[in-house]
Design a protein around this nucleic acid. Structure first.
Length: 653
RNA sequence: GCCAGUGUAGCUCAGUUGGCCAGAGCAGCUGAUUUGUAAUCAGCUGGUCGGGGGUUCGAAUCCCUCCACUGGCUCCA
């Protein structure tokens, strides 16, 4: 007999060699039907695998992350079976689970697969699921495994095998499909009920662009049709919020083939929104002791040779601008730091000047690969809300705390209430790849950790080995209104540029010292931030940002004079308003204004003129009755001032 | 850059196996209408079918090439 310990601490005795499935059955049939896998001594196992000694057992269901990933891994095998059935002779690389779904990388040989084939594959998968084939685990010697795949002519699995140790190799078979696989898997294919193949993509073998490109098929599956339907609904919601679609509909920005790929053109409404964001941050920064600077859009080659960027990115970037002077070359600036370093150097600096915080909304140009461009989130010309803090090592912690305050103020003002942070530190084992002194790294790594602790940040993870070669950093991730994660707000220590630019300050001891440089950008870039914000709020911006706050809708031409009067009063109060003076019916005007996502509608007819009031309608909420204009103005002003109260409508994930 | 796909009025899309002057709805303009909380009616304007080249008696439709976009891969100072 062996002792099995359950998560609640209970211990029960079972026959040696019992499977976790049988243990589950001994507890309840309902449990046995629900579970997908079991965690045995912290390792996820197949339910059928015999347990030979005392162990702790935790059952995994669809509600556990590990249960889901087992489910999706098994789904990848199911898809592989369907693919092999449709295209005999294809070879498989790997098919792992993802955060949401799974994929399989496949060498299709001469075959070509298109989106239209996916439906057929889904059908086949459903058919195979109905067969409810068992996922059969088999331990196999390395020799036999090699033999099997040599006969199959599958160089990919042979490559995988070459890295595996004998005695540690397992095959899994379900139906007609056998795969080299560590497992674990769910008991049988019948669990997989809601099946959707979501896309096809090319993917380099082993992720190396020099290797052959395999075909990657993505999919997602669920234990029932209802969850799949919910997922499809979620995807539709995400599509509705797509900033590229909304950007066009709300006339915020556009692109022109003629201007060039990845070069956004901000339309008046978008430009005004962006300006407002910029002013908002500028104000907060000046209050926090930042000093605005302005630098040109180009810099001489020598600047980037000094910074080291020429060597690293020169060939893959926008090529130099030549001048009539032989040999003279300028580059479009790919970042603002080198310019700011030169501003630092423009004057002799004393320790009394530090920290020196130089801020600029600096537009930079980077030649991103053509396939990489995406709406406003990945462009070739963009404006960073950049600032560089030059300080003494002892000031790093305080500066981090201040930047954290600023970042959280920004998040709060835009309704990003759900965020996490990541501290990226050096690799604990290999410190050779980092520049800067051991002492300074120690100080700043500790400073970041302490700053985060003292600010009481929750949901912080520390990642070792994720730091850049030139310094540790702190990144923020926000979750948007439909639960997607975005990285916003980076704070990065830099030991490299102060060295390369030979930046110094005179210390209390009257000798020269090297300052620490901190890069930081709460938005990241205005382009990317606006994109994330659009998707977060589905185009329904907070009152302080929305391009048009109020639309005045006269019921007929007779009331336009009064409407003009209302417009003037709103304008006198700095409220952004427009009149819809078309001779359309009120229903039509309301519909158009609702679709334009303008938050406040003021409807004016005979009754309002007589009472000297306005009828208020709120976008998405409907009629709110008549109010005096003063009351309306007051409410709007309150909403503008009280930025942090803003919460976009959430959609269940 | 690579793999796969897409490109028809400002927007969303039709356009059968190549064959009558390339269509619709919305938007825009003009006129009628003067309206009470999500689409009033009528008329008109608008496209060298992404650019270039080719096949053909004939190309939006077939082929080549370039460009842009979409989904991924690689990349992201």
């Amino acid at each position: 007999m062996i002792n099995i310990t359950f998560p609640d601490g209970a211990v029960r005795q079972y026959e040696q060699g019992i499977s976790s499935m049988d243990i589950a059955k001994s507890i309840s049939e309902g449990l046995a039907r629900k579970i997908l896998a079991a965690e045995v001594n912290g390792e996820v196992w197949d339910l059928s695998r015999p347990i030979k000694e005392d162990a702790s057992v935790k059952f995994l269901t669809w509600d556990d992350e590990k249960g889901k990933s087992t489910f999706w891994h098994s789904s990848a095998h199911l898809m592989a079976e369907a693919v092999e059935d449709a295209f005999p002779g294809v070879k498989f690389w790997v098919g792992p689970p993802l955060e949401k779904g799974f994929y399989y990388d496949i060498d299709l040989g001469e075959n070509v697969i298109t989106e239209s084939d996916l439906e057929k594959l889904e059908k086949k998968m459903n058919e195979l699921s109905k067969q409810n084939n068992v996922y059969l685990r088999k331990e196999i010697s390395k020799k036999d495994a090699i033999e099997y795949f040599e006969e199959k002519g599958d160089e990919y699995k042979l490559d995988l095998l070459s890295n595996l140790e004998d005695g540690n190799i397992t095959f899994y078979t379900q139906g007609k499909f056998t795969d080299l696989c560590r497992g674990p898997h769910i008991p049988s294919t019948g669990f997989i009920k809601g099946i959707k193949l979501t896309g096809i993509a090319g993917a380099y073998w082993k992720g190396d662009e020099k290797n052959k490109m395999l075909t990657r098929i993505y999919g997602v599956t669920f234990p029932n049709q209802k969850e799949l339907d919910q997922y499809i609904l979620f995807m539709e919601e995400a599509k509705k919020r797509d900033h590229r679609k909304l950007g066009k509909e709300l006339e915020l920005f556009t692109f022109s083939e003629k201007v060039g790929a990845g070069l956004p053109l901000w339309l008046p409404k978008g430009a005004m929104l962006r300006e407002r964001l910029q002013q908002f941050l500028q104000k907060a920064q000046v209050e926090a002791g930042y000093l605005p600077v302005i630098t040109p859009h180009i810099g001489s080659k020598n600047l980037y040779v000094t910074s080291g960027h020429y060597e690293k990115y020169g060939a893959d970037s926008f090529q130099p601008i030549k001048t009539p002077v032989e040999g003279e070359e300028f580059f479009l600036k790919p970042m603002n730091c080198p310019h700011h370093c030169e501003i630092y150097k423009a004057l002799p600096r004393s320790y009394k000047d530090l920290p020196l915080r130089l801020a600029e909304f600096g537009t930079v140009y980077r030649y991103e690969q053509s396939g990489e461009l995406h709406g406003l989130t990945r462009v070739r010309g963009f404006t960073q809300d950049d600032a560089h803090l030059f300080c003494m090592p002892s000031q790093v912690k305080d500066e981090f705390k201040k930047v954290i305050d600023l970042v959280l103020y920004v998040f709060g003002s835009l309704g990003f209430t759900d965020y996490t942070a990541q501290i990226s530190l050096r690799d604990q084992n290999d410190r050779s790849k980092y520049i800067g002194s051991e002492e300074n790294w120690e100080i700043s790594e500790r400073s970041i950790i302490e700053a985060v602790e003292e600010k009481g940040l929750e949901n912080v993870v520390i990642e070792y080995g994720e730091a850049a070669f030139y310094g540790p950093k702190l990144d923020f991730m926000v979750r948007d209104a439909i639960g997607r994660k975005w990285q916003l707000g980076t704070i990065q220590v830099d030991y490299n540029l102060p060295e390369r630019f030979d930046l110094t300050y005179i210390g209390e001891d009257n000798s020269k010292h090297r300052p620490v440089m901190i890069h930081r950008a709460p938005f990241g870039s205005l382009e990317r931030f606006v994109a994330v914000l659009i998707e977060h709020c589905a185009g329904k911006f907070p009152m302080w940002l929305v391009p048009v706050q109020v639309k005045i809708l006269p019921i007929s031409d007779k009331f336009i004079t009064y409407a003009q009067n209302v417009l003037n009063q709103l304008k006198n109060n700095d409220i952004r308003a427009e009149i819809d003076d078309r001779s359309e019916k009120i229903g039509k005007k309301i519909r158009d204004t609702e679709l334009a996502k303008i938050p406040i509608m003021l409807i004016i007819g005979e009754k309002e003129v007589n009472e000297q009031k306005v009828s208020v309608r709120r976008q998405g909420k409907g009629d709110e009755g008549t109010k005096t204009l003063d009351e309306v103005i007051e409410n709007i002003k309150d909403e503008v001032d009280n930025k942090t109260a803003y919460q976009p409508e959430r959609t269940e994930n």
